[in-house]
Design a protein around this nucleic acid. Structure first.
Lengths: 181, 181
DNA sequence: CGGAGGTTTCTGTGAATACTGAAAGAAACG
DNA sequence: CGTTTCTTTCAGTATTCACAGAAACCTCCG
C-alpha cells in the first residue's frame, strides 16, 4: 500500500503499553492496541493501514474494530474520495472514559445488582437457614447501589466542575457541614 | 473429610457469578470464586474445605489463595487446636474495594503514569516531529493525574461522609459556588 | 531421628481464546 | 450486468492460560 506507516519509538511504546493494560482489564490485547493507534492518530485510518502498522491479520482488525464500535469508543467515518471505511477513536479523554465506564456498568455492574437482588429475595423467601450469607449479600448490594448512585450523579458534571470541587479538598466538606470521619 | 460443605443454591449462584465477574475484570475465575466463598463464610476456612466445596484441585486452591493474599484481601489466620492454616476474606465491603482499588492503582495506573511521562519526555526531547501524539499523551496524562488525585483525597473519607456529600447532589455544588456545567 | 500432617512447587495436559488465511459477501463503478 | 474494491464470515491453527496430580518440601511431634 502507498500510505504505509511506521511508528515512532514513542508511539510504539505507548501502543504496546496500552495493549498490556487492556489485557489486565479483560480487554483483548489487539483490540486495545488498535484503539491506542486510533487515539493518537490525527486522522481516521482505514483497516488496511491498521493491518500494516500493527502487523496483524486483516480479519483480526475487522473483528477488533467491531468490538471497539460495540464499546462505543470508535466510529466509522467516511473520507471524501475514498470508498473505504475509515475509523476514528473518541478524542476527548473524559468522554472516552465516561463511555467506557457507562458500558462496563451496563455489562457488569447492572447484572451483578440483578443477581444480588435475586439471591437476597430467594434467601429471604426460603426461610434462610443461613442468615450470614444473606447479610453479606445485602452489604454488597448496598455498596453497589450507593456507588452506582454516586456515579450517575457525577457523570453529568463537567470535568472542570469536578476538579474545582476536588481541589477544595476537605474544605468542601467543612463548608457543607460534613465531617470526614 | 469430616467437615464437608454443600453450598445452598443461593450461595452457588453468587459464587458462580462472582467468578464470572472476576474473569471480566482480568481476575482468574477460580481465584474470584474462592474469594466469594470466603467472603460469605462466617468463619475462616482451611484449604481442603475450599477444595471440597468448589471441587478444584488442592494445588489450585493453594496458588489462588496466595494470589488473594497478594491482593491483600485474604489473610491467613489460625484456629485454636488446629495446625492447618485457615483463611478469611476482608469482611467490610468498603475496605475490601478500597484495598482492591489501591492495589490496581499500584499495579496498573502508576506504571501507566510512568510510561506516559516517559513518552512525553522523549517526545519533547527529540524535537517532536509529530506533536499530535504528544498532545494526546499529555491529555491522557492529565486525566490520570487528576483522577488519581481525586482518589487519594477521597480514599481517606469515610463512606458515610461520602454518602452525605453525594446525597446533597447538585446542591453541594451550588453551595460551593461551582456550576455543574 | 523418624514419621505424620500439612503446604507448596513443578510438570504435563486440557480447554479456552486469539489469530490467520481463504472464501464468501456487499457495495460501487463502468 | 460484470468487474473491481472492500468488508465480513468461517474454519482451521497456534498460543496462551488454567488446572490436576505427583512429587518435594517443610514443621511439628513423639
Amino acid at each position: 500500500m502507498a500510505d504505509e506507516h511506521t511508528l515512532s519509538p514513542v508511539q510504539q511504546k505507548f501502543i504496546l503499553h496500552w495493549g498490556e493494560m487492556g489485557a489486565q482489564w479483560g480487554v483483548n490485547r489487539t483490540v486495545a492496541q488498535i484503539h491506542a493507534l486510533l487515539f493518537i492518530s490525527p486522522r481516521p485510518l482505514h483497516a488496511e493501514e491498521i493491518t500494516d502498522t500493527l502487523g496483524v491479520a486483516r480479519s483480526n482488525v475487522s473483528n477488533s474494530l467491531k468490538e471497539l464500535q460495540g464499546w462505543g469508543i470508535v466510529r466509522r467515518v467516511h473520507v471524501m474520495g475514498d470508498r473505504r471505511d475509515h475509523f476514528e477513536s473518541l478524542k476527548d479523554v473524559w468522554e472516552l472514559f465516561r463511555t467506557i465506564a457507562d458500558e462496563r456498568k451496563k455489562r457488569e455492574v447492572d447484572p451483578t445488582l440483578a443477581v444480588l437482588r435475586d439471591c437476597i429475595a430467594e434467601s429471604t423467601k426460603t426461610g434462610a437457614p443461613d442468615s450470614y450469607t444473606e447479610g453479606k449479600l445485602r452489604e454488597l448490594l448496598g455498596f453497589f447501589e450507593t456507588t452506582t448512585g454516586w456515579y450517575s450523579q457525577l457523570r453529568g458534571w463537567s470535568p472542570s466542575a469536578l476538579s474545582r470541587l476536588a481541589s477544595m479538598g476537605d474544605k468542601a466538606l467543612k463548608l457543607l457541614g460534613v465531617s470526614p470521619g
